[in-house]
Design a protein around this nucleic acid. Sequence first.
DNA 1: AAAAGCCATCGTGTATGCAATCCTACTTCT
DNA 2: AGAAGTAGGATTGCATACACGATGGCTTTT
Lengths: 233, 233
Amino acid sequence: MTASMPTRTETLSSSIADAILRGEFKPGARLDEQMLADQFGVSRTPVREALRQLAATGLVESRPRRGTVVASVTPGQLDTLFGAMAELEATCARLSALSMSQVERRRLQALHEAMADAVTADDGEAYAGGNQRFHSLIYEGSRNSVLIEMAVGLRRRLEPFRRAQFRSPGRLPRSHQEHGQVVDAILSADAAAAHAAMLHHVSLVEDAFERLPLSVAGPESAGPDADPDASSR
Amino acid sequence: MTASMPTRTETLSSSIADAILRGEFKPGARLDEQMLADQFGVSRTPVREALRQLAATGLVESRPRRGTVVASVTPGQLDTLFGAMAELEATCARLSALSMSQVERRRLQALHEAMADAVTADDGEAYAGGNQRFHSLIYEGSRNSVLIEMAVGLRRRLEPFRRAQFRSPGRLPRSHQEHGQVVDAILSADAAAAHAAMLHHVSLVEDAFERLPLSVAGPESAGPDADPDASSR
DNA sequence: AAAAGCCATCGTGTATGCAATCCTACTTCT
DNA sequence: AGAAGTAGGATTGCATACACGATGGCTTTT
């Protein structure tokens, strides 16, 4: 974020976020302020501010007087998050089809073609990297930093659930083919097609994951949860 | 927010936000922590946390070691914000066309018809209230709390720029007619048409405002601002 | 006299201490 | 014996205190 001189709060915010994304702090785990302060060698004050910052991004959940826990995403919430993500990405794809420069379109096409190699080599690692750049290009193509920020935030929030994304056999070629449809639509400036193709693509990613036992419901969510999700705050 | 017992930080957050939205704190104004603490009769600690919270929503901007100021929205940023809003609302309209219940569709239709009275009476106040509910209904129709949260946040952030929204003569009938197209599309479950109609509608609102001298560039933003917006962080 | 460097003052960042609240475990009553 | 009330411990919320960095005015030098 800010470059000048990293304040302890910023450092902590990144460190704790990384720890959560790495799985060192599992969903539902209590984040004791004093414990974190000792662990990172600072006082409670910057820890508190870092936790508030993370709470704003949805990575953790703070309840007044009750402490902070790593956000445990219920299957319903995961569904909602992926759905919002799909819509945002589809919107970015639509806008990309409308307003990408020729240079950007070529760059997208080139990346897509380069990723074909990773597919034939069945190199999931390489493909994941290319995939990241692919979606980033389309974010940028929207020309709207607010949308980009939202999409990046969502993507980051969903990161832990995308780990084994390209593990399932046959997923690489399929993903690449879906990318191809998005690329074709954007290159031919077909906004509706770009929207549809991207929505299809991201929704499939969702399908691949919503059945996995990813999110263990936190030990506190015992109430009769009628709502499929509860992104209140 | 949380219902239990409002913590000082939460109270402050709301109070300061209201003060900003009311215009008591103008864009670019410095928000001195001690000053706010004295003004609200608390210590600096909850003030700091409240400011952090507001910074996360984009209402204020904090720079390390340099203090916090009320976010001054440049015309370019306003454009970006309205654009993102339009896309989000269009997305919600699209989803509403797909997944609204019959009850919801009737409710939407009823509200729309009721708003016709406000149009013939040229009652801008009443129409503004109905307009708010109209858009809220369509948010809810998306069935996606994440999207709703984003849309509500954006709408709140843009609130100060929508004050005189229905002042210009002839705006009411036009807005109502645009609403009609959205309603028709949703009632007939035409997703693409709902998207297009809502995008058109909100974009026109944007057009009506982007030429007004709304945002006075803060006294500090004297640098050569090449970027149309800078929604970093 | 203008520009550059220095010093004082202010404000934020961080640490520490105190008080209120919540959770847990134990006691006690039915 | 089970359940409710209660006391103790633990943790968060808030206040106060200290330290570092930033900003503005002043002195000094060319």
